[in-house]
Design a binder for these strands. Structure first.
Lengths: 116, 116
DNA sequence: CCGATGCATCGACGATTGTCAACATGTCAG
DNA sequence: CTGACATGTTGACAATCGTCGATGCATCGG
């Protein structure tokens, strides 16, 4: 239990990172649509989008440095990082007291592919 | 008032089709994040994703033909087509009694670009 | 003109979501 | 050990969302 790496949750939406359903070429199944929708919904909040862009810009950010720029309380930041982490979009690395968040580019690439 | 083309609503999110904010390269402004989030939120529902993929697959579909495959009542289909239309993702063309929905590829391309 | 059809709108309902205060847990400095 | 700090968790609240029945407005066929 002394691992320094958070397993990035990785909930249920593993259905489309083995291979990638595309929205436009073929009709989506119910399961594919639910998995994809969960990731798009994670991007469907302005605070989370700004959080994501901050992480991408700085390559590594701790939660405490996002409270003031985002103008939200600490539990709210924690809530949003969890949603993005569950969606496989970011990943948290705990070093000491801080958690350093970074982008997981694979899921973003899969999304881009799904819109092709 | 006898036009056969629906103006595709085109609400407020014109901010990012003039030129395209990217999530990963620079920190998003509050306005950019809100506009982008609205479109991602439109994709954040499994029924809307399947609706979108049906429209893309058939190139043109009327609402009546989506009621049974999607398993939702007519007002619900109408609700979802309006959301996708407001997001600039689809466009409805009224011909006779039917409205034929088709994909608007530009907004999808902008989204793909925003994830690059 | 009349009945049927396709769709939008309205109103209502339960479910989900974004937000934060309060609290709990774990980590570091002294 | 103790106090300060960073973060996750819980519970509560208002707001939004997805859904559908009822209704209204066009349009078509006869």
């Amino acid at each position: 239990m002394a691992k320094t790496t958070i397993p990035a949750h990785h909930d249920t939406n593993d259905a489309f990172d083995s291979c990638c359903p595309t929205v436009l070429s073929s009709a989506l199944s119910v399961d594919e649509a639910e998995d994809l929708a969960k990731v798009f919904a994670a991007l469907g909040d302005p605070v989370r989008l700004r959080l994501l862009s901050m992480v991408a810009e700085a390559r590594e950010v701790c939660s405490c440095d996002m409270i003031e720029p985002l103008g939200k309380a600490q539990p709210t930041i924690s809530h949003h990082t969890k949603i993005l982490s569950d969606a496989g979009l970011i990943r948290g690395d705990k070093r000491g007291r801080w958690i350093w968040w970074s982008i997981l580019p694979d899921r973003l690439a899969a999304l881009r592919n799904a819109l092709a």
